[in-house]
């Protein structure tokens, strides 16, 4: 499992092992300031990062920063 969330400290305290930081609480995988197309590009990047994390071995709690 990969956890995509904005508040990574909470994710760490509840014990997630693969963590992807996201944009903001009300829109973790979007950004209303962007156009629909730009937003989807942004979202895709984040999801691809999450998939990458799933393919990565970790030996403890890991936050996948940029």
């Amino acid at each position: 499992m990969v956890h995509m969330c904005t508040v990574t400290p909470i994710s760490l305290t509840v014990g997630a092992n693969r963590i992807i930081p996201t944009i903001a609480i009300p829109y973790p995988l979007g950004d209303p300031k962007l156009t629909k197309e730009e937003e989807k590009v942004l979202r895709r990047k984040l999801v691809e990062k999450a998939l990458k994390a799933l393919e990565t071995e970790v030996d403890g709690q890991t936050v996948f920063e940029d």
């Binding site: 904005t6 508040v7 400290p9 909470i10 903001a24 609480i25």
Partner: peptide
């Protein structure tokens, strides 16, 4: 950037 301390 949102502050986690404030949020908590």
């Amino acid at each position: 950037v949102m502050s986690f301390a404030d949020l908590s």
